[in-house]
Design a protein around this nucleic acid. Sequence first.
RNA 1: GGCCCCAUGGUCAAGCGGUUAAGACACCGCCCUUUCACGGCGGGAACAGGGGUUCGAAUCCCCUUGGGGUCACCA
Length: 490
Amino acid sequence: MSVRLRYAPSPTGHLHIGGARTALFNYLFAKHHGGAFILRIEDTDLDRNVESAAQEFADNLRWLGIEWDEGAFSGGDYGPYVSTERLDIYRRHVDELRDKGMVYECYCSEDELAVQREELLARGEMVRYSGRCRHLSKEEREARIREGRKPTVRFRVMDDEPVAFTDLIRGDMIFEPQGIGGDFVVVKSNGIPVYNFAVVVDDHLMNITHVVRGEEHISNTPRQLLLFKAFGWTAPVFGHVPLILGADGKKLSKRDESIIQFIDQYREYGYLPEAIFNFLALLGWTPGGEREIFSRDELITAFGLNRVNRSGAFFDAAKLAWMNGHYLRNHSAEELLPLARRFLEPAVAGWQTPVNDAWMIEFIALYKDQVSCLSELPVVGSVLVSDSVSVEADARETLENEHASTVLDAFVKLAHAWTDWTPDGMKSLLKDVQTVTGKKGKELFFPVRAAITGRLHGPDLNRSLALLGRTRVLDRLGKALAVSGARPVL
RNA sequence: GGCCCCAUGGUCAAGCGGUUAAGACACCGCCCUUUCACGGCGGGAACAGGGGUUCGAAUCCCCUUGGGGUCACCA
């Protein structure tokens, strides 16, 4: 039988790196085994559902290159793929358990439950439901209904034997019946099933063979296993992946602002999906060996749950930045243009002469090797992209130096008549300046660079000059000359 | 607190009884370069502690310590 895995988020916010990583592991595992990857929306918590969140999940998953074979927003043979569209399915299954006497209505209020919980917690015991409504008589039930109480439906936990399963990542797991927490709620008082119930029904009906999810779900597993058993179904195989940790060493909280953790944010900063894909795959999993740059197909080929780590992993944004830079360097400026355009166009919006694609490609080529994301392009290249450039202290010092004025004066005079403003042309121009002034090396290049960019460091000077163009170069040289004072040699 | 999970450098991690304990990110130094960046070379930096088992433990077992997850009518 072919393998089927799913990613089943609840649409309560943005896709974050933890969720993306879970989706990715499911995807990689499914594809590795030639099986199906499914996207299901688990929206049983009506209060927390966020409009358009599901759509946003789908968009970001697609952007990352994590495509699903069936599921929400694309359909398939096992739909619907959204919990709230499956309510009647759940209802039928609750009825089935009720007929078997395996569930019962519970009329305890949330306040009453809270009091019991506090008591148990204070006593240091595992919180478990008392079973108070387990054996209510018909009269007692009717009395409660008359009080206006809306019941939940609880699953009757028979605490006679431990629940065990073999986790694909952690090995054998055994839960003593006491550790399950007593009869648990399966349908909320609003008639909507609880996640733990819905996933079981959905996973079975959708023929899910492997459930790969975060470690925080470990304690849910025995309850779900009990449900599978109650229905007489074969449970899927489980694999619990380690948590992604924040700087504090705790499970990454969506409210933790010390770290950028939403996929759409990385998208905004101009990260490449393939870099995030690669990075996330290696967070908590390793193919072994020393390599760490892998294409999507290579990851699919290499992936396996057996090499997933068991301990939590700190999310190292600096390494992601490095990896993204690596991918940037491996793309040509032409390839990057469509992605970089939205960052560059606003940056040059104030320019009198409109910049064309060729200009932007050359600009990208000049700077792409030193940035870690596309949004940094206009920042590192600000001296070429802005019309008001400040002169840094060391650059000013250079300009005030004696030979600077000599070089600049010669440059200006030659430049006025110069027609070839290409990088090669600029090379010849500088050569001529060298010939005329006798200055070379740093004495030649530093003053020119300082004059046109206001700083001593930057990318290739010839190309920078060509990009700036005649008008701007002449304009900036004029201003620089005012600083250094003319010492003509021509 | 109960239940459960985890433990190699600052971080990601290789290692599965015998290694000088890989590699990458970050950091530092040198080289390349007109400069910066890229790149190359080099450096500092780790097996939480204690008991076993064994000729021999980072590797296997136990305990301690530390960290984490979870205890909802949330997922």
